[in-house]
Write a protein that binds this DNA or RNA. Sequence first.
DNA 1: ATCGTAAATGGAACAAGGATCCGCTTTCAG
DNA 2: CTGAAAGCGGATCCTTGTTCCATTTACGAT
Lengths: 195, 195
Amino acid sequence: MPAAGPTRGASARSKRADAVRNQQTLLDAAAEVFVTSGIDAPIRQIAARAGVGLGTLYRHFPTRADLVTAVYHHQIEACAEAGPKLLADAASPFDALRQWVGLFADFLVTKHGLADALQSDSDRFATLHAHFLDRLMPVCAQLLDAAVDAGEIAPGTRPYELMRGIGNLCIGHDSDPRYDPRRLIELLLRGLRLP
Amino acid sequence: MPAAGPTRGASARSKRADAVRNQQTLLDAAAEVFVTSGIDAPIRQIAARAGVGLGTLYRHFPTRADLVTAVYHHQIEACAEAGPKLLADAASPFDALRQWVGLFADFLVTKHGLADALQSDSDRFATLHAHFLDRLMPVCAQLLDAAVDAGEIAPGTRPYELMRGIGNLCIGHDSDPRYDPRRLIELLLRGLRLP
DNA sequence: ATCGTAAATGGAACAAGGATCCGCTTTCAG
DNA sequence: CTGAAAGCGGATCCTTGTTCCATTTACGAT
């Protein structure tokens, strides 16, 4: 992987230093604002927090999804990398699946409004949706396949559907203390299991 | 139940005829617009379709949730009344529960965006949410209790959580052909069942 | 060191939708 | 018939997203 550092000798005008700086500033500001005001915070608020103009924000992140994707990029990676690791370490493929689903759910649940955004009916978050799927669906598929091969669950459950279902169940977890997605996710997994 | 008719002899100025007429016109217009443009259609569009001013719409239905609730009121009633009926007719309580959940899911799925609205993170739809719960949760509770008493499912699953889960699973069903909430709901019910 | 220019910037300006307010109109009890 | 309360409509304001462009800045070339 090419270092993301200065890379001074690049061809043409590589990238202006102020642009790099601003991009990072925006990322930091967005992360803070997402925590306090949720993922749907006004664009202006983020730009203001970063101390840059609206145009600058739009230049670096044309859509809100791009910004969200960038902010949570490393956490998505971590979740993706945990899949094979769990498969190798867990007592059984099904156990690995359960643990991974737990990680995935935790990720969605701890980021205020992330789950909501992911399933947003419009395509305002199409990029985010796509990135999640590209990176995570293969991991989920691998876990499912392993569990099927081990005879622990019935074949026929598609990774997309499962991930989407988990994501949906995580929506609005914080709006009512009576609702805990984890219990329902556990039920879903029980339903998956072969008798 | 007191008749909703003219009720001419009521005390004081009962209710002006034009107001009643407009309310009905708005309801009809909203129903049409919801079908074509979804539940999030601009308020202006509904007022225009009804041929009334914005002020009139806001007077009759202060929030969007009020309008939605009114439009779907009779369908909510039908769903509520189906509960006891199914319990009496079905082969077993669990079967009744399964059928009722099917009805509930169908309702949410056929109304473009209803499920989304119900779980909307903000409280823009608080009224709608409350009405759904008031009317339907007791029904769900009755079905769950019956299934528990019959020894078909384990106790401990709360009606609120189940309904909310079903609702969440129905979100965005039409945004991707690969996603069919019914399969996941079936999985959830399987997970509920005692071994 | 300075210079020319493409990249980057900031924020004014426009669009869309929700909510409010108030002068005018309609209804209807007396 | 009449007056006043209820109802009406849409102009207006607010918030938020999005675009656009005159100005500023960094930096490779000279």
